[in-house]
Structures are given as C-alpha cells and as structure tokens.
Computed example of a mutant assay.
Amino acid sequence: MASSSYFLFAALLVLASWKAIASDPSPLQDFCVADNNSRVLVNGFVCKDPKDVKAEDFFLAAKLDTPRDTKTNKVGSNVTLINVMRIPGLNTLGISLARIDYAPLGENPPHTHPRATEILTVLEGTLYVGFVTSNPNNTLLSKVLNKGDVFVFPEGLIHFQFNPNPYKPSGHCCT
C-alpha cells in the first residue's frame, strides 16, 4: 500500500514538473496550390499536383502601389482584394490581402471577418478606425491613424474604417 502511494506521489511530481508543450500541428504538405480547373471543392480548392506548381502560382503583378478610383460606389471606397481566386498559392494558407482606397469622407462600413484577424497599415492620409468588443460590455475601441501606423482588428469583431479628411483621399493595405 505504501509503495503504491509512493509511486502515485512520484508520478504526480513528474507530471507537475513537466513543462507544458503546445503548438499547432505541422501541415501535412508545404502548400496546396488551388487547381482552378477542378470542379471539386473541399475546404477551399482541390490541390494542384505539386509537380505542376510554378512560381507564378504564388505571384500577382497587382500594382498595389497605385491608388484606385473611389468615385464609383456610394460609400467612397474601393477594395482591391488579393485572395486565392487571384493567387492560387494562397489556397488553405488562411491569409489574404486587400488594398482599400478612400475618397474624402469615404468609409469601409462596419463589417466582420468571422475566420480571420485583420491588420491594417495606413499607406497615405489619415483614417479613423475602430472595433466593438463583444465581451464584457460592447466597448468601442477606436483610434485616428496616420501614414505608417498599424492597427489590428481581432477575428470576428465588428470593425470599420473612415477617412475623416473632407479634402484628401486615404489608402491602406491589410492582411
């Protein structure tokens, strides 16, 4: 009886002194380039045969340094989205990129991304940005950003961007 108590105590001591190790599992493959010719959809797009993958599958000459027209929609903004539809190599990687240009007083109305955190970098001008917490008390967290500033919108939270300048356009790029 004493030896079993001693063994249990020793086992608990070993477990208590063991450092916890936690991480995401490694992917099963390096990448899964979307096969846009396949009609089968499984958690994204079917993977292209890795032997057929080329550098072009991870590249797009998007010219994101060029401002876009903001006069064609009612909210005064223009979103240039870079996702798996434009770069097949993004398939299953859980990341996309967007450039948003704002007219004077233009906005990106309140919206949410249920499966992704967004990080925003102001490229030009000024933006008033914010998000609403869901816990504990629906608080608005907001900030005025200037060129070069960065702001993070946590996954799933309602957020917005607004160009407060009535005279100058603004632009940002986010992932």
Results as ranks from 00 to 15, higher is better:
D57T: 04
Y102L: 05
C47N: 07
N37P: 00
V40I: 11
V46A: 09
G44A: 03
D57I: 02
K143Q: 15
C32W: 01
P50A: 08
G89N: 10
S134T: 15
P104N: 05
G106M: 04
F31T: 13
C47F: 01
I119W: 07
T126Q: 12
S142G: 07
V46T: 09
A98C: 04
L60T: 04
R68S: 11
Y128G: 03
V132K: 06
R115G: 02
V53H: 01
T92N: 10
V75F: 06
S134N: 14
G94A: 05
C47V: 03
G94Y: 07
A98Q: 07
D24T: 04
T70R: 02
F160E: 01
N36W: 07
N78F: 08
E118Q: 10
K143D: 11
A34D: 09
V46K: 06
A11W: 07
R115H: 11
P104G: 02
P166A: 11
A34W: 04
N36H: 12
C173E: 13
L81E: 14
D65C: 07
I158R: 03
F45H: 12
D52G: 00
T121I: 13
I82D: 00
T112L: 07
H111T: 09
L120G: 00
N163M: 01
N37K: 06
L60I: 09
Y102S: 04
S17V: 05
F153W: 03
S26V: 13
A62K: 02
D24H: 01
P166Q: 10
A11R: 10
A16R: 04
N43H: 07
D149W: 03
V84M: 07
P50C: 08
S3N: 05
K48I: 06
V42H: 15
A11N: 09
L81G: 12
N37H: 04
P166G: 07
D30V: 08
G156A: 01
D52S: 03
I95H: 01
Y6E: 11
H172S: 15
N78L: 05
N163A: 00
V79M: 02
I119V: 14
K48P: 05
G89H: 04
A11M: 11
L157M: 01
R86S: 09
K168V: 10
L8Q: 13
L81M: 15
S5F: 13
N36L: 12
P25V: 10
D49N: 15
L12K: 13
Y6A: 11
A62E: 06
N91T: 06
S38C: 03
V33W: 05
D149V: 07
G148R: 11
I119G: 02
R39Y: 07
D65P: 06
A16F: 10
A55K: 11
W18C: 14
K143E: 15
W18D: 08
T139Q: 11
L127A: 00
L64E: 00
T112S: 05
L41M: 14
V122Y: 00
E107F: 03
L120V: 09
A55Y: 09
W18H: 10
V132M: 13
G44K: 01
N83F: 12
N137S: 14
K143G: 02
F58I: 09
K168D: 15
G125A: 06
F9N: 15
V46F: 00
S77Y: 00
L123M: 14
D24A: 06
E124K: 14
T133W: 03
T66Q: 13
P88G: 10
D101E: 13
